[in-house]
Design a protein around this nucleic acid. Structure first.
Length: 240
DNA sequence: GGTTATGTTATTTC
DNA sequence: AGAAATAACATAAC
C-alpha cells in the first residue's frame, strides 16, 4: 500500500468536497467537508487520517483504486472528491476508526515502515513454537504486510522449507527470515515504482532458479495457502 | 466454463 | 464458551 500512499500524497491537507460509495459502514456525512491530515500505509491497509477519526481501506484480493479516474465497470465502494482530484475504491473493505490512529497501530510491525523492528517480530514468531513457518510468517499481527508472495520468496531466499516448525528453526535464522520479508518487500515496492515486471524467484514459477529442480506446489497449513518451494535447496527443520 | 488467486472477517459447527 | 471449520465477499486470469 506504500506504493499507493505515495501517489495519494497530493491529497494530504485537502478538504473532502464530496464522499460517495455504497459502503454502509462508513458515515459519509461525517467525512464531508473534513480535511485529510495524513495518508498512511500500514501493512496491506491504507489510512486516511482526519482530526477525530481515520478511514481504513483494505483492498483484499480483488480490490482496486483509481486516482483521478473512475472504473466504470465496477460499483463504487468508497470515493473521495477533493478540490484537486479524486480517489475511488472498489471491491475493498472499509472501516471507520474512531479517535487517534496511534491507538490502533504499532508501526514497528509493518515490514515496510521505517520503524519496522525485526527483533520484536522474531521474538513474537518464537512465541508460536508449534506453527509451521509458512503460516507464522503470514500473521499480520507480527509481520504486517507480508502476504503469500513475500512469504514464499523469503522462505526460498533463506533456504527454509515452508513446513519447518518455528521452534526447530535456529533463532538467528528466524531473524534472517524476518529481515528477508522486509528486504523483499522493499524490492517489490521498487519494481512497482520503476514499472518493472515482477521478478519472483519461486512464486508462480515451476523450476528452481538455483538448481533447476521442479518446484513443489502445495497448499499447506490450516490456511491452505499455496506454497512454492524447492525440496532440494530449502531445508526442513523439524522437532527432534 | 471451471478453477484459482496478492486476504480478511463473519458465521456456523464442533 | 471457545476453538476450528466454513462461507462470504467480488473479480480477473488462465
Amino acid at each position: 500500500m506504500l506504493f499507493f500512499k505515495e501517489q495519494l500524497e497530493q491529497f494530504i491537507g485537502k478538504n473532502v468536497l464530496d464522499v460517495k460509495g455504497s459502503d454502509e459502514k462508513i458515515p459519509m456525512k461525517k467525512i464531508q467537508h473534513e480535511t485529510v491530515n495524513d495518508i498512511r500505509a500500514f501493512g496491506k491497509e491504507l489510512l486516511f487520517c482526519f482530526s477525530d477519526f481515520t478511514i481504513r481501506v483494505h483492498l483484499m484480493l480483488f480490490g482496486k483504486l483509481a486516482i483521478n479516474s473512475e472504473l466504470g465497470s465496477r460499483s463504487l465502494k468508497l470515493g473521495f472528491t477533493f478540490e484537486n482530484g479524486e480517489v475511488n475504491f472498489y471491491a475493498c473493505s472499509c472501516k471507520f476508526l474512531e479517535g487517534s490512529i496511534e491507538t490502533y497501530y504499532d508501526w514497528e510491525k509493518d515490514v515496510l515502515n521505517e520503524e519496522f523492528n525485526a527483533q520484536i517480530a522474531a521474538e513474537k514468531l518464537l512465541k508460536k513454537p508449534n506453527e509451521l513457518i509458512c503460516e507464522a510468517l503470514l500473521d499480520q499481527d507480527i509481520l504486517a504486510g507480508v502476504g503469500n508472495k513475500l512469504k514464499n520468496e523469503a522462505l526460498f531466499r533463506r533456504k527454509v522449507h515452508p513446513e519447518s516448525i518455528v521452534s526447530a528453526i535456529p533463532k538467528p535464522e528466524i531473524k534472517k527470515l524476518v529481515e528477508a520479508c522486509s528486504t523483499i518487500g522493499k524490492e517489490y515496492l521498487s519494481w512497482l515504482q520503476d514499472g518493472e515486471e515482477n521478478q519472483w524467484a519461486v512464486y508462480k514459477k515451476t523450476s528452481c532458479p538455483r538448481d533447476g529442480n521442479t518446484l513443489q506446489i502445495e497448499k499447506l497449513g490450516k490456511s491452505k495457502r499455496t506454497n512454492y518451494f524447492c525440496e532440494n535447496c530449502q531445508e526442513i527443520y523439524l522437532k527432534d
